[in-house]
Write a protein that binds this DNA or RNA. Sequence first.
DNA 1: ATAATACCTACTATACAAGTAGGTAATAAG
DNA 2: CTTATTACCTACTTGTATAGTAGGTATTAT
Lengths: 131, 131
Amino acid sequence: MISTRGRYALRVMIDIASNQGDGYVPMKDVAARQGLSLKYLEQIIPPLKDHGLIKGIQGKGGGYRLTKKPSEYNIGEILRLTEKDLAPVSCLAEGAPECERRQECKTVKLWEGLEKVTNEYLDSKTLDELL
Amino acid sequence: MISTRGRYALRVMIDIASNQGDGYVPMKDVAARQGLSLKYLEQIIPPLKDHGLIKGIQGKGGGYRLTKKPSEYNIGEILRLTEKDLAPVSCLAEGAPECERRQECKTVKLWEGLEKVTNEYLDSKTLDELL
DNA sequence: ATAATACCTACTATACAAGTAGGTAATAAG
DNA sequence: CTTATTACCTACTTGTATAGTAGGTATTAT
């Protein structure tokens, strides 16, 4: 299940896209408009910045803006960066210990298929479709 | 993310299908073969019985067996019964309070689409495909 | 100099997942 | 008809992750 981290990140991206104009959008304003905790958003945002999806500028008049056109973001990349893991089961999660039963496991292909289907769906949707 | 409840339920169904022959399979044996806690499985199984997916018989020589052919079970129904909820976000979960932002929410259609995609995938797979 | 912003790290409360525990009721076999 | 074996039932426990709160520092426009 998608947690608040991923859901809020998406709302932040939508909010920035809707309000950036040709300037920068302060997270304080995003938090107020979206009814979310500024302090919590500050913890969610960093991976989006570190991977170049948004650009942040400090100081008065600063804030964030998108680095690409909304149509160039797919939802999957936003969620994969902000959500712990998009894997449908823990044994497919990144950094999960190799399962002893992997060889004889009758269900692993099912889960891999499910992971593929969800990622394909999320990668097929772009940010501008949500505006 | 699919929890142990759903994953174990699936393994139980596979195990019963593989071992029932023309008799009944004790959960004790399933637990031993699968390396799972009997006591925990006993908590997971009831909804499968209550909805007629399996039939239980008490007493010596008792156990469980399937009520249909493996090809007649789809994975989605097994998971929906044993997993708390298959909804991708909490606001789409059963019994969730109506979201105030529902009207203005830009993301709800995305989540509904994701839910549809995952359910369609899981409903398209049958138990016999896992044997 | 000041106010506003991003940026950083530690801590906390709560809920839930994943079991453990200790029984009772039913039934086949000896 | 006693015993062993099974399903079936309900309460309790423990560890971990989520969803924050809290208190700062660094940077920059005015």
